[in-house]
Design a protein around this nucleic acid. Structure first.
Lengths: 205, 205, 205, 205
DNA sequence: TATGAATGAGCATTCATTCAT
DNA sequence: CATGAATGAATGCTCATTCAT
C-alpha cells in the first residue's frame, strides 16, 4: 500500500467516522425531542459545532434522518435474514427474531425510537418510501411466522392473527423507549423475559 | 327560567359544544400529523375556518393540547377509579383495567395517540406537569396491582416486576395507533384477546 | 347587486390592489438592485411591512418575479398583436412596434429591466419557461418583419439579418435602463428619435 | 541572472499565470450566472479546485470582480486613447472607437458582460468607484465626439444629443451578450455592419 | 364569531471566508 | 498550493399569535 493510498483511506475513514459521530448525536437528539421539534441548531449544539457546519457533512436535516434510519434498518434486516435463513422451527425462529430485535434496540436505540415515532409521517415523502417497504416486509414476515407456528402446533390457534402480530410487534419495539444500555438487565435478559411473557403469559400456572 | 337566562345558557352551551367540536378536529389532526408538525392553519382548515379564528376559542395551540389531554385523562382515571374502588381480586382488577383502557382508546383515540407520542416532550413545560403526575400514579397502580397479584398467587413470581409493568402498559396503549372504531373487532373484543395473550401467552398448551 | 356581492367584490378588489401595490414595489427593488441581490426583507422594507408579511400575499420570491414578468409580457404582447393584426406595411409595422415597445417601457419600466437582466438566469427554471417562449416568438416576429421589409423594398438588403434583428431588439429594450417617466422626453418622443436613428442613421445626408 | 533570481521570476510568473487562468474562469462563470448568483464554490468547481483554495490567490470574491473589470477597462481605455490621440476626424474617430469596442468585446467578452450587468450595483461600493469614473469619462468622450461631428457636418444636428449617446453606447456593448469568438462573423465584420446601421440606418435608400 | 392582514421570532439552509494541516 | 473542516452572518420562508373590522 503506497503512502498516498494510506492517506486517502485515512481521510476517507476519518470523514466517515466524523459523519457517524455526528449522526449518533443527531439520532439521540431526534429521539429525545422528536424529529420535527428538533432544530438543526440543537443538533449542532449537542455536537459542539455551529448550525451551518453540519451542512458540510450532510445535505439536509432530512438526509440525516434518512441515514440514521436506513443504517438501522439495513443492520436489522441483515440480522433477521440470518435468522430466517437458518431453517429453524416457528417457535425457535420467533425466539431468535425477538432476541435480534432487542439486540437491534441495543445497537440502535435512538434510531428505533425515531423509527417508531416518525416513520408514519416521514414515509409520506418519496425519499422515505423504504420505510413503507420495510414495514410491509415486517408484517409479512410475522404473519407467515405466526401461521407457520399455528400449523406446526407451536402457537395457539384461537387468537386473531392480526391482533397477535400487532401485539408482538409493538411489544418488542416499544421497549426502545425505556431501554438503556448498561442498565440492570442486558438486551438478552430482557428478550428472555419478554419471550416468557409473550409465550407463556403472566398468570401463574 | 327567564328567556335571558335561557339565552345565556343556550349560548354558553353552544360555545362549549363548538369548543368540543373544534377540539375533536384538532385532536385528530394532532394525532395523525404529530403535534409539532401540525400547524394551527391545518387545524383551522380541517375545521373549515381561518387560522386566526381559532384564537377566539382557544388561547394557544398549547391550550388545545392541554384540554385534549386533560379531558382524556380525567375520563380515564374516573373509569380506573371505579374499578379500583370495586374491591375485586388482582386478576379481575387487571382484566377490568385493561377493558377500561380499551374503552378509553375507543372514546379518545386521537387523545391517546397524542398522549403516547407527545407527552414526553410536553411534560417538560410547567403547564403539562399533570402528565408526569398521571404517569407516576399509573406506574404505582400497576406495580401495586402486579405485586398484589403475585401475593395472591394469581400472577407469576419469576418475572421482573418493572418489566412486566412496562410490558402491559405499552401493550395496551400502543393499540391506539391502529384501533379504528367500527372495525371488525370491538374494543371489548380486542381487550378479551389481549388479556388472553397477556395472561396465558400465545404458545399452544 | 346585493350588498353581500358588493362586499365580496370590494374585498377581492382590495386584495388585488394590495397585491399590485406590493408587486410594484418589489419590481422597483428587483430592478434597481438585481433580483438575486435583493433580499425579501429589502422588498418588505420598501413596502413598509415586515419580511414575513409578504408571504401572506405571495408564495415566494420567485412567484413575485413570475407575476411581475408575466403581467408585463401579457400586456406587451397584447399591444404587439394589435399592431401585427392591423395589416400595415413592413415599415409602418416596425414603427408601430417600436412605439409600442417604448410605451411598454413607460408602463412597466422595472419589469422590463428585470426581464433584460434576469430572464437568462430565470428561464432555466421550469416555472419561467414562458420567458423562452416569449423570446422565441419575439425573434420570429422580428426576423419575419425584417424579411418582409426587405422584400417590400423598405429595408436595406445588404445587412446581416440576424445582426439587424439583434441591433433593433437591444437598442429598444436597453432604453429601459435609463428611461424615467415624466422626464424631458415622453415615450413617444424617444420612440420617434430612435426610429429616425434606426431607419435613417445618424450621419448627415 | 542568478538561478535564484530566475526561480523567483519563474514562480512569480507562474503565479501570475495561475491568477489569470483562475480569473478567466471566474469571469466566465460570473458572466453566465450573474455575479451575485454565482458562488465561490461554482468558480472553484469550474477551476477544478476547492472553494477555500481560491483564497490563496484572491482576497475575496469582490477582488476577483475588481481585477476582472479593471483589467478590461485598462485595456479598453488604452485602445480608446490610441484612437483619440490619432487626430482623426469625428466620423473616422467614431468608426475607430466602435471597432475598438468590438475588439474589446472579442478580447474580454465575459468582463464586458459583467460590466454591463453588475457595474450599476458594484459601483455603490468605494472599491468600485473607478467604474463611475470610467462611465463619466465614457460619456464625456462620446458627447464631445458627437458634438464635434455635428460641428464638422458629419453627423445630423436634428437628434437629441443625449439620446444619440445612449443609443450608440448601448448598441455596441449589448452585443457582448451574444457575441461568440470564432462565430460566423469576426469582431471587425460585426463592427462594420453596426457602423453601417448606426451611420446610414436600415431603411433602403 | 369569524376574517384577513400583519407581526416577529425562529427555522433550515447557503455561502463567503478562515485556518490548521 | 491545495485541502477540508469549521465559522457566523444572512437569506427565504414558516408559523403561532394579534387585532381592527
Amino acid at each position: 500500500m503506497s503512502p498516498r493510498r494510506r492517506d486517502a483511506e485515512g481521510t476517507a475513514a476519518a470523514r466517515a467516522e466524523r459523519r457517524a459521530e455526528l449522526l449518533g448525536t443527531a439520532a439521540e437528539v431526534f429521539a429525545s425531542q422528536g424529529y420535527a421539534a428538533t432544530t438543526i441548531r440543537q443538533v449542532a449544539d449537542a455536537a459542539g459545532i455551529l448550525g451551518g457546519s453540519l451542512y458540510y457533512h450532510f445535505d439536509s436535516k432530512e438526509s440525516m434522518a434518512d441515514e440514521i434510519l436506513s443504517t438501522f434498518l439495513d443492520d436489522m434486516w441483515a440480522a433477521y435474514d440470518r435468522v430466517l435463513d437458518a431453517g429453524l422451527g416457528a417457535r425457535e425462529t420467533l425466539e431468535a427474531i425477538v432476541v435480534e430485535s432487542f439486540r437491534s434496540i441495543d445497537r440502535h436505540r435512538p434510531a428505533v425510537v425515531i423509527y417508531q415515532n416518525e416513520s408514519k409521517h416521514l414515509s409520506a415523502s418519496e425519499r422515505f418510501h423504504y420505510l413503507n417497504d420495510s414495514h410491509r416486509r415486517f408484517e409479512e414476515m410475522w404473519i407467515a411466522l405466526l401461521e407457520r407456528g399455528v400449523a406446526e402446533g407451536a402457537f395457539r390457534a384461537d387468537l386473531d392473527r392480526t391482533l397477535v402480530y400487532r401485539f408482538v410487534r409493538d411489544t418488542v419495539w416499544v421497549a426502545a423507549n425505556w431501554y438503556q444500555r448498561g442498565g440492570r438487565l442486558s438486551a438478552e435478559d430482557i428478550a428472555k423475559q419478554y419471550l416468557a411473557m409473550v409465550l407463556e403469559g403472566i398468570q401463574a400456572t
